[in-house]
Simulated assay, not measured.
Amino acid sequence: MKKTNRLFETIQIFRAADRPIRAEDLAARLEVSVRTVYRDIAALQAMRTPIEGEPGIGYVMRRGYDLPPLNFDEEEVEALRVGLCMLSRSGDRALRRAAERISTKIDALHAPADWIQVSRWGAPEDDPELGCVSKAMLRAAVREERVLRIDYADATGARTTRDIRPIAVIYHVDAVLLAAWCELRNGLRHFRTDRIHACEATGATFRGQGAVFRQLWSEQNRWDVVSDMAARAGTS
């Protein structure tokens, strides 16, 4: 989590707390070290955020402190709510949890809108207990331009091990696709994430090449056609 996001999340945790919070408990919730928590609290205090307390005792934030309101009109807020709800259809557990955090922040500034409902039917959820690879890991590999080694099953069930350079994630209505340069086929391919049975980083990167691969991809494909065809047929 980036520092700016972590500081924002820290403020939200203090706003919702009804008792002092120990640095150790805050560190566990944010998945960082206690030392990082101390540094973050010092940074917030330097920005005149009214957090008080001491190490070993706990911290509280004085009542009345709030963040600036979101400058969205009613329809824009409703658009955000629908979009956030639809993330549950992506099957991406990390994005769903992020959407829930954002929704909580919106509810803190606007009245809840339980009359807006979105069906959760969609792509299979990336549940590690079911042997599914985390979509968050795949997204991170795209962002960081890291080479992955995957165990992939095609539409017939035949499995291959491939080294790939992931360049994009495509969220289809009932499947999620990973676009990548496949070193086995020496070309661009699309992989259904629910058919990736194992995945690990090789340690190699393709820094600075992602944009080039995406440009090549855009010259060969259209997003809507690829999503429809690859979601049904898988890659080869």
Score class of each variant (00 low, 15 high):
residue 197 H to G: 04
residue 179 A to D: 12
residue 152 Y to Q: 01
residue 176 V to T: 15
residue 152 Y to F: 02
residue 163 D to C: 00
residue 168 A to V: 06
residue 167 I to Q: 02
residue 194 D to I: 03
residue 157 G to P: 03
residue 199 C to F: 08
residue 190 H to T: 10
residue 153 A to S: 07
residue 211 A to N: 08
residue 177 L to C: 03
residue 182 C to V: 00
residue 165 R to H: 02
residue 187 G to S: 13
residue 195 R to W: 12
residue 177 L to E: 01
residue 204 A to D: 08
residue 197 H to E: 13
residue 194 D to Y: 10
residue 209 Q to E: 11
residue 196 I to V: 15
residue 158 A to P: 10
residue 167 I to N: 01
residue 183 E to K: 01
residue 207 R to C: 13
residue 183 E to F: 01
residue 173 V to K: 14
residue 179 A to F: 08
residue 153 A to H: 11
residue 157 G to V: 06
residue 173 V to N: 09
residue 200 E to V: 02
residue 179 A to W: 10
residue 163 D to V: 01
residue 211 A to F: 11
residue 195 R to P: 07
residue 208 G to N: 05
residue 177 L to S: 07
residue 195 R to N: 06
residue 194 D to Q: 02
residue 196 I to S: 09
residue 181 W to D: 03
residue 203 G to A: 01
residue 207 R to M: 12
residue 191 F to Y: 15
residue 156 T to L: 09
residue 156 T to C: 06
residue 206 F to A: 00
residue 203 G to C: 11
residue 173 V to D: 13
residue 181 W to R: 04
residue 178 L to P: 03
residue 192 R to L: 15
residue 210 G to V: 03
residue 174 D to T: 12
residue 164 I to Y: 10
residue 156 T to M: 07
residue 192 R to Y: 12
residue 169 V to G: 02
residue 185 R to I: 05
residue 182 C to W: 00
residue 187 G to D: 05
residue 207 R to I: 13
residue 170 I to P: 08
residue 174 D to Y: 14
residue 211 A to K: 11
residue 210 G to Y: 14
residue 153 A to E: 07
